[in-house]
Design a protein around this nucleic acid. Structure first.
Length: 439
RNA sequence: GGGGGCGUGGUGUAGUGGCUAACAUGCGGCCCUGUCAAGGCCGAGACCGCGGGUUCGAACCCCGUCGCUCCCGCCA
């Protein structure tokens, strides 16, 4: 007999079916036993009248919560049953894997008793059984598929760049160093150089969704040492605004797809209405941002005169939300002083670069890149870099490299913002941080 | 790396100088002709992170240490 998903049982009334799932609840009474079985698609009540089969009744009495079961029985309509108005009259039951008791914690227990995040991460497989998490990763799957649809429709090419590198790609964030035969290698902190290479290769539009590594000992609710980066790079742009308008329409599309596929479930499980953003997103230059901060009375530390700190980003997010209703805002025209050498300058001191803030959280940095070899070399020097270790990169710009730009976006940060969750460790399958390499 | 907070049965909390350390949930047992996040009764389970100190007396105060956590720095 083929397995029937629990969510489809209504279509099998009065038939004998086989279902497989986890024992959600057992109500063991004197004459009658009720098992609530759960699979990915839903839950159903299985009823067993004990005198029908005392041996089977005994087996059922010995079952533990979360055990993996295979059950056959007849589907019957019963309006009396609060769970879907139907139940299964038990015919046979097999235990695939008996759960030990007690469980490390009750994934379906009362919300107030939910263990601390760190403990749940120790037992992540159990934590992931929670409805919230199942839905979260279903939504992530839909979102990633939507992004790929958006890009593939535009003819962009998906790339998979190496994560082992012989030299650092960008300055700034720290690199993980590892032994590589007779020499040293580094884990990629970004596919930046390689996606720009694709522009020199004539691919015109590329994207990559892949892992990146940052050796920063950051102890916050929004940093990881390994995370999935969503990267895009496109050629023949006029300026950085082409990159922004490309990204915002993509995000709008992805939000719409998630809402269409999971909107009702998200509302039920998270109590959250997915809001598809309006485009274009508001755009604020760095100079305007500082003016706004002054207006709302946010004190920026003196060393941040060219920059923003997380508090300023939250204050700007609040201000924009209040003024325009938008959760998203682009901060543009960042000073060259706080940007990497390959961002194209705008005037002497500014750049054609942007950050995207969502609910006051930085989820993207992007820019038009400097594609003119001489100027790029000059800017590298200005940042104190020597050409030698990055000559392979600089060579991209010597034989006909088109103007281009792109961005990098954190997958889990995007999900965190979309689902309004306060800790990134909730939105990643397995968290990696300075103190967490297991499981 | 700097700063703040927390550390009590399996889990989540209460207790902030004098208790046999409380409650919820989970676990075990019994009761209940249909329950439904079932209900009722009974029971087991914590020397209060660890080490030292103050005190007649410490879960509670002090010092150290470890762990976790949040913020800042860094960024996605």
């Amino acid at each position: 007999m083929e397995r029937t998903p629990i969510g489809d049982l209504r279509a099998h009334l009065d038939q004998t079916v086989m279902i497989k799932g986890w024992l959600h609840v057992l109500r063991d009474q004197k004459k009658i036993q009720f098992i609530v079985l759960r699979d990915k698609t839903g839950m159903v009540q299985i009823t067993h009248w004990k005198p029908n089969d005392e041996k089977l009744a005994e087996l059922i009495s010995s079952l533990t919560t979360e055990s993996a079961l295979r059950v056959t029985g007849k589907v019957s309509d019963n309006p009396q049953v609060k769970l879907g108005g139907l139940e299964i009259q038990l015919e046979s039951l097999a235990v695939e894997n008996l759960a030990e008791s007690p469980l490390p914690f009750e994934p379906f227990g009362e919300k107030d008793n939910l263990p601390a995040l760190d403990y749940r991460l120790d037992w992540r497989f159990m934590d992931l059984r929670r409805t919230e998490n199942l839905l979260l990763f279903q939504a992530q799957t839909t979102m990633e598929m939507a992004l790929r649809e958006y890009w593939v429709e535009r003819g962009y090419i998906e790339m998979h760049s190496p994560k082992l590198m012989g030299s650092p790609s960008e300055s700034g964030a720290e690199l993980f160093e590892l032994d590589y035969f007779e020499t040293k290698a580094y884990l990629a902190q970004s596919p930046q150089f390689y996606k720009q290479m694709a522009m020199a290769a004539g691919f015109e539009g590329v994207f990559e969704i892949g892992p990146v590594f940052r050796a920063d000992p950051s102890f916050t609710s929004r940093h990881m040492t390994e995370f999935t980066s969503i990267d895009l790079e496109i050629s023949w742009i006029e300026d950085e605004d082409d990159v922004m308008s490309n990204q915002e329409r993509m995000l709008q599309y992805a939000y719409q797809r998630v809402k269409d596929a999971h909107g009702d479930a998200i509302k039920e499980v998270f109590g959250l209405e997915i809001e598809v953003p309006q485009v274009p997103f508001p755009r604020v230059t760095m100079a305007e941002a500082h003016q706004i901060l002054k207006e709302v009375g946010y004190q920026l530390p003196p060393e941040k005169k060219n920059d923003l700190d997380p508090g300023a980003e939250r204050a700007l997010g609040d201000y924009i939300k209040q003024k325009t209703g938008s959760d998203f805002v682009y901060i543009t025209e960042w000073p060259f002083a706080v940007r990497p050498f390959y961002h194209m300058k705008k005037g002497d001191n500014l750049t054609r670069s942007f950050d995207l803030l969502a609910n006051g959280l930085e989820i993207t940095t992007g820019a038009q890149r400097e594609h003119r070899y001489d100027i790029l070399l000059e800017q590298a020097k200005e940042k104190g870099l020597t050409a030698d270790p990055i000559q392979f990169y600089l060579d991209f710009f010597r034989y006909g490299c088109p103007p281009h730009g792109g961005y990098g976006m954190g997958l889990s940060r995007l999900l965190m913002v979309m689902m309004k969750l306060s800790n990134i460790r909730e939105t990643v399958y397995l968290f990696r941080g300075p103190n967490r390499l297991q499981p």
